[in-house]
């Protein structure tokens, strides 16, 4: 509004004759001529919004006259403006004026003129612009808001295919595959326990049913290294499963293999001596 004021000041600077409308009137009629609403347009107060259906015809009539003399005037510019405040769409319809200043405009909704902008459910604000004069007298331009007009919604305008990329686009989320289903850990634990327990119970039972077995050389220096190397191999295989790569396993396995061959020979020779040699 602040910016508007210089323009208003500018308007006040010029003196010219004033135009006015005589007997402005609108009529809404159906195709077969039945009038559903007919009212004079008051310039002071806007009428209640007008509703047009697909088959209605809106008739608008008025005469443009010089306010002081009352004579009809034919201005150069007589425009009806249809403006959708919500979408900003606008349509301008120039009106034909007789030399007496009489204007008659029919808006047939079954054949809407090209000037009607694409509409949604929001009303169109209709205003009238009158400016210029074909005669030598200069007139102040006249601008007035006539009424709000509800008309059936049009098809939406197809936007440019690239237009969407100039706005915020809808978010996209990836739908992940569901996690694989696992049986309850309790059941897994029970079966794991069963797998461990069953053979060992039998084994240990048998072991204790035997007369005590003497283990004379469990810690003997010739046997123990071989036992430990076998254990180390088992441990290496476990590590292979958990973290090591094949190359590491082959490397450690080769070292361990060398050691095992040596400790094995020593241990087996010791066993041989014990069994045969004695």
């Amino acid at each position: 509004m602040k910016l508007l004021s210089p323009l208003l000041l500018l308007a006040a600077a010029v003196n010219a004759s004033i135009l006015t409308l005589q007997s402005p009137k609108f009529t809404i009629a159906t195709k077969d001529g039945q009038q559903s609403r007919s009212e004079p347009i008051s310039l002071a107060q806007k009428p209640s919004p007008l509703h047009l259906s697909q088959t209605d015809i809106l008739k608008l009539t008025f005469q443009i006259v010089d306010k002081s003399s009352g004579n009809g005037v034919q201005p150069r510019q007589v425009f009806l403006r249809f403006y959708d405040e919500e979408s900003g769409e606008e349509g301008i319809q120039p009106l034909r004026v007789a030399s007496t200043g009489k204007v008659k405009f029919d808006l047939d909704m079954s054949k809407p003129p090209l000037s009607i902008p694409p509409t949604s459910t929001a009303p169109l604000e209709v205003s009238l612009f009158i400016g210029g004069s074909t005669t030598s007298t200069s007139y102040s331009p006249l601008k007035m808001d006539l009424f709000s007009l509800h008309i059936p919604a049009s098809h939406p305008v197809p936007p440019h295919p690239d237009e969407a990329s100039f706005h915020l686009l809808p978010e996209i989320e990836h739908t992940f595959r569901p996690d694989p289903k696992l049986p309850p850990t309790f059941i897994s634990a029970v079966f794991a326990g069963a797998v461990i327990a069953a053979p060992w119970i039998v084994l240990l039972g048998l072991w204790f049913s035997l007369p005590s077995l003497p283990l004379p050389s469990l810690a003997s220096p010739s046997i123990l290294p071989f036992t430990l190397s076998i254990g180390a191999f088992e441990f290496l295989l476990y590590k292979y499963w958990v973290e090591l790569k094949l190359g590491d396993v082959l490397f450690y396995g080769a070292i361990l293999g060398g050691v095992t061959v040596f400790t094995g020979r020593t241990a087996l020779r010791a066993v041989e001596q014990r069994r045969v040699g004695k």
Binding site: G193, I196, P199, L213, P216, S217, F226, T227, I230, L237
Partner: peptide
């Protein structure tokens, strides 16, 4: 559990076999 148990069994058997007397 089965695999570890088997490995362990093998190790125990080896130890016992090697350490056992020529009974």
């Amino acid at each position: 559990a089965g695999a570890i148990s088997t490995s362990l069994g093998f190790f125990v058997f080896s130890a016992l076999y090697l350490a056992g007397d020529a009974r």
